[in-house]
């Protein structure tokens, strides 16, 4: 069997059923672009989400009576919690300076002694971001001797967790639905293409072409359509990303391997779609 003839028939097939091929390519391109942009948005939301979380700190205010040894021990104890990434000591002096920096007011001119307690600033690992987990950690630290109070931005943690998490879940569901729709769409358009060429398949069967020989051009054609459609989709997404980066949001990130993934997905869908459709029309 000549591979050259098969490849030629595949390409000629694309040319012959130009309209059907264009429709297939465009629908693959549109659905993959849509799928890609949903993935893109989801990924960047997650990224923003993570960046917010990285800024969340627990402020652990300490008894002023603690000695250096005790401070050191306490720091170690806090650090032992699995949720804790780092613990930074802020002396009451440093806290005062920070206050002055932030508010531009010199407290020492109003008050004789420094009212700000020393504290530990606890940085969290991004893995443990559920509000209950953070609250639990805060309670555990609160119970340690020498700790006066633990504060953090509870409301923001709650908000982020609730809405951004929900948003990402919705996006993922949509992306999945789009994937299902693309699959059905591709199967159907390729089935239409093949249906429009029933006579050629019939003749091939009549003159004794083998099954594989009849299928191959359609499968090659389907793959080419999938590849072209996904290439277009990747082009559109790349343009979209660079536009967003230039105009709206500088920090936009492309998930690693998104483009190759889309190319492989499109090609595979084209291949599978044509394979299944052509099988439907072959009697033996």
């Amino acid at each position: 069997m000549s591979v050259f003839f098969l490849l030629k028939e595949g390409i000629v097939g694309l040319k012959r059923a130009r309209l059907a091929a264009v429709i297939t390519i465009v629908s693959i391109c549109l659905s993959l672009s849509l799928f890609g942009s949903f993935t893109l948005v989801g990924y960047n939301l997650q990224d923003v989400f993570n960046r917010f979380y990285k800024k969340i700190r627990l402020e652990v205010f300490l008894d002023s009576s603690l000695g250096l040894d005790q401070l050191e021990k306490l720091k170690k104890k806090i650090h032992q919690n699995p949720e804790v990434e780092a613990v930074e000591y802020i002396s009451s002096q440093a806290a005062l300076q920070e206050f002055q920096k932030t508010f531009g007011q010199d407290l020492s001119s109003v008050l004789k002694s420094n009212p700000l307690p020393a504290s530990f600033r606890v940085v969290l690992r991004p893995k443990y971001t559920a509000p209950e987990r953070i609250e639990d950690l805060a309670n555990r630290i609160r119970r340690l001797p020498g700790v006066q109070e633990v504060l953090y931005q509870k409301e923001i943690v709650r908000f982020l967790h609730k809405y951004l998490g929900l948003g990402i879940a919705i996006l993922l569901i949509f992306a999945f639905l789009i994937l299902v729709v693309i699959t059905i769409l591709i199967f159907n358009t390729i089935r239409l293409t093949i249906h429009s060429r029933m006579n050629i398949i019939e003749i091939m069967q009549l003159v004794g072409a083998t099954n594989l020989f009849i299928k191959s051009p359609y499968i090659i054609e389907g793959m080419l359509q999938g590849l072209l459609g996904s290439l277009l989709a990747v082009g559109i997404l790349a343009l979209f990303v660079s536009f967003i980066r230039d105009v709206f949001y500088h920090g936009i990130q492309v998930p690693p391997h998104l483009y190759p993934f889309l190319l492989i997905l499109g090609t595979l869908l084209g291949l599978l779609g044509s394979y299944i459709s052509v099988n439907k029309y072959l009697k033996y």
């Binding site: 003839f5 012959r16 006579n199 019939e202 003749i203 091939m204 004794g208 072409a209 020989f213 009849i214």
Partner: peptide, 20 residues
């Protein structure tokens, strides 16, 4: 049952092409 987009020669040759 001829292929309308191929000439006479190609229509006949088709039966041989598909069997390699």
């Amino acid at each position: 049952k001829l292929l309308p987009d191929r000439n006479v020669y190609e229509n006949v040759a088709f039966a041989l092409r598909v069997i390699g």
